[in-house]
């Protein structure tokens, strides 16, 4: 449900480096965070807490790429930093708005 009142975790140094890797490898061209970014790949806002996918799944893609995703030749260190970044993003909230958060005026209420 709503994450409006969730305490926001401050960025840690490893996640900050991961944010730079995200930008330097231009991940936003293909992936979205909170629905903002490219459409080639899935939205990664909550990939780390996804019960079916999660960190191991994400690491495989970061290491090898996929049929659609090129191998970006990331070092082990960069993969760790990107993982820390995506975990930090994951804790900030949910990218999908729940049906119960839609008000009768068509707006969202994310307080509860």
């Amino acid at each position: 449900m709503g994450t409006n009142n969730l305490p926001q975790e401050k960025i840690n140094p490893i996640a900050a480096k991961g944010f730079r890797v995200w930008q330097q490898k231009n991940c936003q061209s293909c992936h979205q965070l909170y629905g903002l970014g490219g459409y080639m790949g899935p939205d990664l806002t909550n990939i780390m807490s996804d019960s079916l996918k999660g960190e191991p799944y994400a690491r495989v893609f970061m290491t090898n790429g996929s049929a659609k995703m090129p191998n970006l030749s990331l070092s082990a260190e960069q993969i760790n930093e990107l993982t820390a970044f995506l975990k930090w993003v994951d804790k900030s909230g949910h990218s999908r708005v729940d049906k119960r958060e839609v008000t009768k005026w068509g707006n969202y209420s994310m307080d509860n």
């Binding site: 629905g35 903002l36 999908r96 708005v97 707006n107 994310m110 307080d111």
Partner: peptide, 17 residues
Amino acid sequence: HHIYNIPTANWERTIAY
């Protein structure tokens, strides 16, 4: 409206809407 689904303050959405 760019950030409707980001869990920010509700007033931002209301004004934009």
